[in-house]
Design a protein around this nucleic acid. Structure first.
Length: 318
DNA sequence: CCTATTCCCCGCCATA
DNA sequence: CTTATGGCGGGGAATA
């Protein structure tokens, strides 16, 4: 069953924040998913200037937000970050009736004003994180993450992080293979998943070439028994320096990063092949099926077999 | 499930 | 003086 996604425009919205949701949810990807894609609508109260170069005029109003399964708020109203009350109200109603609420950049201020972030972890553009935390003390603001998934409420950091969050949502709804296929088609990196639960590490900032090369090399050799030492040797630095660089640019440790890559590889193999779990563990570079199961349990809270039954592209009945 | 061993992480400090 | 690197070692986690 296709899910409906509604994008809420308000004044002072930027083109950049709109790009990811429109390209990812708004363009029909049923060929990649193998089943119906989202239905997508853009909602606004009348004509809205977009970044001063365009005027958006939409077929839907905020009234049409409340019936959507997923509501995306890509921006806040003005420079004071005071959200428009009609949008706040629409978000409140949509959430109350079970919709999943998503914010990009300063859209978090709309969610906060609507009360759907109370007691939760959230993020926003780093420039405004302190303001958000000050204004809404019952929200735990995480300034250094790409996005946060609280289940029914998801927030992402500035602009570009919205793309990562949209892909994360596709991953949740349609599986890793579909999300990765879209990432390939958009020629954007498939995002790296955070180690701890749903928290995603900070964006890679100005990653030096030697590190990028090493990451690419490791991904090509993910099936080999890679160690931190062999990564360091390939990179031409000491394990200590490698460790430091991983923390600085990727906000994780070498081994944790490796395990993420292995897990992602295993997910794709489970979805797209009928290899045994043992074979997949071997191909993905795990020490054994036990190690794979352990990783699945720790980060996905499920088992490889259940995961495969949920996401496999093979027996696509109906 | 328990044990032994290997591997990894990270503070600390010396060095370049 | 500031900044990045690398070695060391205790403590902890993963693997066999």
């Amino acid at each position: 069953m296709p899910r409906s996604v509604a994008l809420a425009l308000s004044r002072h919205v930027g083109l950049y924040e709109l790009a990811a949701p429109c390209a990812i949810f708004g363009v029909d990807r049923s060929d990649l998913a193998g089943c119906p894609w989202y239905s997508f609508r853009v909602c606004a109260p009348g004509k809205i200037p977009v970044d001063q170069w365009f005027i958006a005029h939409t077929a839907h109003t905020y009234d049409d937000l409340v019936s959507a399964d997923t509501v995306i708020v890509p921006t806040c109203h003005d420079d004071d970050l005071r959200p428009p009350s009609d949008l706040v109200e629409a978000v409140r109603v949509a959430h109350a009736s079970g919709a999943r609420i998503v914010s990009i950049c300063t859209g978090a201020f709309v969610l906060a004003e609507a009360g759907v972030l109370s007691g939760k972890h959230a993020t926003t553009h780093w420039l405004h994180a302190a303001t958000l935390a000050r204004r809404y003390p019952d929200i735990t603001v995480e300034p250094d993450v790409l996005y946060i998934d609280e289940g029914d409420v998801l927030t992402s950091a500035g602009k570009a992080a919205g793309s990562d969050l949209c892909l994360h949502i596709v991953r949740t709804d349609y599986g890793a293979a579909t999300a990765n296929a879209i990432a390939r088609r958009l020629v954007t990196p498939p995002h790296r998943d955070g180690g701890q639960a749903q928290y995603i590490p900070a964006a890679a900032t100005a990653t030096p070439d030697w590190l990028q090369d090493t990451l690419a090399w490791a991904q090509r050799h993910i099936g080999d028994p890679l160690t931190v030492a062999s990564l360091a040797r390939e990179a031409g630095v000491s394990p200590r320096t490698l460790n430091r660089n991983f923390h600085q640019r990727l906000a994780t440790s070498p081994l944790r990063w490796l395990q993420q890559q292995r897990l992602q590889c295993a997910q794709e193999l489970l979805e797209t092949t009928d290899h045994t779990v043992d074979r997949i563990a071997e191909l993905a570079g795990f020490a054994g099926a036990t190690a794979l199961r352990r990783e699945f349990h720790l980060t996905l809270h499920t088992t490889p077999d259940v995961y495969r039954r949920t996401w496999s592209v093979w027996p696509r009945t109906q």
